[in-house]
């Protein structure tokens, strides 16, 4: 058991190291200097107060998106629809943010709640289809992503603006931004969302590990038939898991809408945050605290990458390659397990 837990921690670490190594090889093969590249990346992520602020800002939605993917995963569901749930959450948060004028202590929670409900409803559809009709949630959530994208674009054009490309700025009473956080980070876009996402991680841990419902959700994830036999309502748990997962994703959208951008604009494509959430959840082992670490890593990679073209002449996309390879290595953990076991046997 103990060595098993060790292997579980070793796999993501190995995967990250292999991913970074592979990134270095890609840089060498394409004629870039990997040391200059990675130094630029490191500087761009943590080099000074401004960069640290930007990195934390990027980590904020990553944590929540990762939690969303992981929560569904723990119940045996693959929610690829985090992206779409995030977009509708973003839309709902901004909608509430621009339409009402309320005191901050009501307005801000209301906007976040609206985002959570929107995300939850968007995830309810694949959940209920899975429970009632046994339709695979992966396909439905992918389709729901595109529906979310096009529908929210249409709403931004026709409802939130007059055939324009973005909504108005949200009222200050719904904003997560803070002068204080901006001033200590050299006017980055850092906002209070990071606190909400850390609370989110605690909520997920508590729900799954410390409540009866969480035990049921995990049981369904381990073995649907056994849970059914033990008298649990599998279908209801599937819908519940999707709804909670969607709520996390919706709140991730609220972070963008109320903090980072303070509005919503028509999107030509996906934000990518929802898909990156899959990587975050996988690397974090679908564990609330693992996800925080994974989100910090990916957030730092994404923000640090922006520094690479100017100081090391390396295209930012190198980081996407590294992230993709990390997912590959985590997914193919069978290989890493095999190697680790081989070493263990030889060690004896």
């Amino acid at each position: 058991m103990n060595s098993n837990r060790l292997t579980n921690i070793m796999i993501p670490i190995f995967a990250v190291l292999l991913g970074i190594l592979a990134g270095a090889i890609v840089m060498i093969v394409s004629g870039y200097d990997p040391i200059a590249g990675y130094s630029a990346l490191l500087y761009g992520a943590f080099g000074d107060r401004y960069y640290i602020g930007e990195t934390i800002r990027q980590v904020t939605p990553y944590i929540l998106a990762g939690l969303a993917v992981a929560f569904a995963f723990r119940t045996g569901l693959f929610n690829i629809g985090v992206e779409g749930q995030l977009i509708v959450g973003w839309l709902a948060a901004v909608w509430v943010g621009v339409s009402f004028e309320l005191p901050k202590f009501i307005h801000l929670p209301l906007a976040i709640l609206a985002a959570a409900i929107a995300g939850a409803l968007w995830a309810f559809i694949p959940g209920i289809l899975k429970a009632r009709f046994k339709v695979h949630e992966v396909i439905v959530t992918i389709m729901m992503n595109y529906i979310a994208l096009h529908v929210s674009n249409a709403i931004i054009r026709s409802v939130l603006s007059d055939q324009g490309f973005k909504s108005e700025k949200i009222h200050a009473s719904a904003s997560l931004r803070s002068e204080f956080l901006q001033s200590i980070t050299d006017y980055s876009t850092l906002h209070y969302g990071i606190i909400i996402s850390l609370i989110g991680a605690v909520v997920m841990w508590f729900l799954l590990e410390k409540t009866t419902k969480g035990y049921e959700l995990r049981a369904v994830g381990f073995n649907q038939h056994a849970s059914h036999y033990a008298g649990m309502n599998v279908n209801r748990n599937i819908v519940l898991a999707m709804v909670i997962s969607g709520a996390f994703a919706g709140v991730a959208g609220a972070m963008e809408g109320l903090g980072t951008f303070e509005n919503i604009s028509v999107k030509a494509g996906f934000t990518g945050v929802g898909f990156d959430g899959i990587a975050v959840a996988l690397l974090g082992g679908n564990n609330a605290f693992g996800i925080i670490f994974a989100a910090i890593l990916f957030g730092a990679l994404k923000v640090g990458a922006l520094e690479m073209p100017s100081s090391a002449d390396v295209p930012t996309e190198l980081v996407d390659i590294v992230i993709a390879l990390i997912i590959f290595f985590v997914a193919s953990s069978y290989l890493i397990r095999l190697v680790l076991n081989r070493f263990k046997k030889e060690g004896k």
Partner: peptide, 12 residues
């Protein structure tokens, strides 16, 4: 998951 990684990798 592997398919998702393919999508990331191809675009990157």
């Amino acid at each position: 998951v592997s398919g998702v990684a393919i999508n990331f990798l191809a675009l990157g």
